[in-house]
């Protein structure tokens, strides 16, 4: 096994184990921390594919900002095992069924998609470099990019409106 392969298997195992522990762990703070580890593992995969920009932005935005806000809320809610609401049995069953359906759809989609059978470019691909990505975003995909930024702007305005309601 080469070093890349060892890293790949290690990161994959880490991602799966920590993603499972997000769901399994009783304490929501541990769930958030496991989710952060999952993001690290996924970023590691991005970097193995030489998509450095996406890898680091994934860390900055998700692990560095969004998960901090998650932790914020969870720490302030003062959750402990006594007052955690017990979900009823049918809800749990429904969750399992819908999760299974989603997985079925994913498997079916990836089985017939065109990426099937292609080997990912590790280390020497340059699709994920900052320069390539910037050129693609601001030349080919400039309209969708700007539209999505307007979407973010509207979300921000909405948050401000909701925050101002009390005054």
């Amino acid at each position: 096994m080469s070093a890349t392969q060892i890293l790949f298997w290690f990161l994959s195992a880490l991602a799966i184990v920590s993603a499972l522990s997000v769901v399994i762990s009783k304490n929501p703070v541990y769930s958030v921390l496991s989710l952060i580890i999952t993001f690290f593992a996924v970023s590691g995969h991005y970097i193995l594919l030489n998509a450095q920009f996406i890898g680091i932005v994934n860390l900055i935005v998700y692990a560095g900002a969004i998960m901090v806000l998650f932790l914020f809320v969870i720490m302030l809610m003062n959750l402990n095992q006594d007052n955690e609401p017990q979900k009823n049995k049918w809800l749990k069953m429904a969750g399992v069924v819908s999760g299974g359906c989603l997985m079925l759809v994913f498997v079916a989609a990836f089985k017939t998609s065109e990426v099937n059978g292609k080997i990912a470019q590790t280390i020497d691909g340059n699709i994920g470099l900052t320069e390539t990505l910037g050129k693609a975003l601001f030349n080919e995909y400039v309209v969708p990019f700007e539209i999505s930024s307007i979407l973010f702007l509207s979300a921000m305005v909405g948050a401000v409106v909701i925050g101002k309601k009390g005054d």
Binding site: V29, L33, I36, Q52, F53, I56, V57, L59, I60, A63, G64, A65, V68, L71, F72, M75, L129, T130
Partner: peptide
């Protein structure tokens, strides 16, 4: 000497907040 030097610094700085938050909580 990585291609994303500044972003790396930025990423690590944004992780720094966990030390404070986890310790305090």
């Amino acid at each position: 000497d990585i291609n994303i030097g500044i972003l790396f610094i930025f990423g690590v700085v944004s992780m720094g907040v966990y030390g404070i938050m986890i310790g305090g909580w």
